[in-house]
């Protein structure tokens, strides 16, 4: 019997491919955002609003990940944005290979921003690098303020936190200060935006964040 040391990351194949995608996105100067959230937190609605607000300013496309149906892609297309759908079947996450396979359907070099709407799930998508510049975690007040403590993985991966459905907060027991404290325990440096897609409160700061990051990416590609 011989023990052989290996020290190999099981997802190294995914990570290598993601690194390749990241280099390609940098060459083309497109900002790529990996959108993480639970089902029903308002990802698609946020994208619709974003697409309408930034139309004419930025060239946007979206990759929609879902277990089934083209519904999300249809909604995004109706907002005037080029969208492709990946149906994962029973799969709970997108991986770099799925992104690489669908990219030929999008003219990436002609884009400023590419949104990847991951499968609604706070656990599995956090494990898979897709070559994005930033992971944006969308949460809504109706999900409860205990999520940072229960799903630290997603919060740890996130580069920006967007708290949605702020207009419904008075009807829930969601405590924003407690939430903020729990987020800070997992990732103190994680910035948070508070928005409501219904009343459009706070959305301006989200649009500005995208415009700022797009400009930075165009001028000085990361990596």
């Amino acid at each position: 019997m011989t023990e052989i040391k290996i020290q190999k990351n099981v997802l190294s194949k995914n990570d290598e491919l993601a690194a390749e995608l990241r280099r390609d996105f940098a060459r083309k100067g497109v900002l790529v955002l990996n959108m993480l959230s639970s089902p029903g937190s308002g990802k698609t609605t946020l994208l619709e609003k974003t697409a309408r607000a930034l139309a004419g300013k930025l060239r946007i496309a979206a990759i929609e990940g879902d277990l089934q149906t083209e519904r999300d892609a249809d909604r995004i297309r109706a907002a005037g944005v080029r969208a492709v759908q990946i149906n994962t079947g029973r799969g709970c996450h997108l991986d770099a290979n799925m992104i690489a396979n669908i990219l030929p359907k999008l003219e990436v070099a002609e884009l400023d921003v590419l949104f990847i709407e991951n499968v609604g799930n706070l656990v599995c998508p956090a494990a898979f690098d897709l070559g994005e510049d930033f992971a944006v975690l969308l949460m809504s007040v109706t999900e409860g303020d205990d999520k940072p403590a229960k799903y630290p993985t997603a919060f740890l991966k996130a580069d920006l936190l967007v708290l949605n459905k702020l207009d419904l907060q008075p009807y829930t027991n969601f405590d924003i200060e407690r939430f903020r404290g729990d987020v800070a325990r997992v990732k103190p440096s994680l910035p948070m935006l508070q928005v409501s897609c219904t009343t459009e409160q706070g959305l301006e700061s989200w649009f500005q964040w995208i415009e700022r990051k797009t400009k930075a990416k165009r001028e000085r590609p990361r990596r």
């Binding site: 023990e3 290996i6 020290q7 740890l156 325990r185 997992v186 990732k187 103190p188 440096s189």
Partner: peptide, 26 residues
Amino acid sequence: FRCPKCGSDKFDIEAGQSVTIDSITV
């Protein structure tokens, strides 16, 4: 999630987010 030495909240994760194959016995 803070550095125990200087208290900073800025750090890079080096391990613990993935599954690794550490060794095989043949």
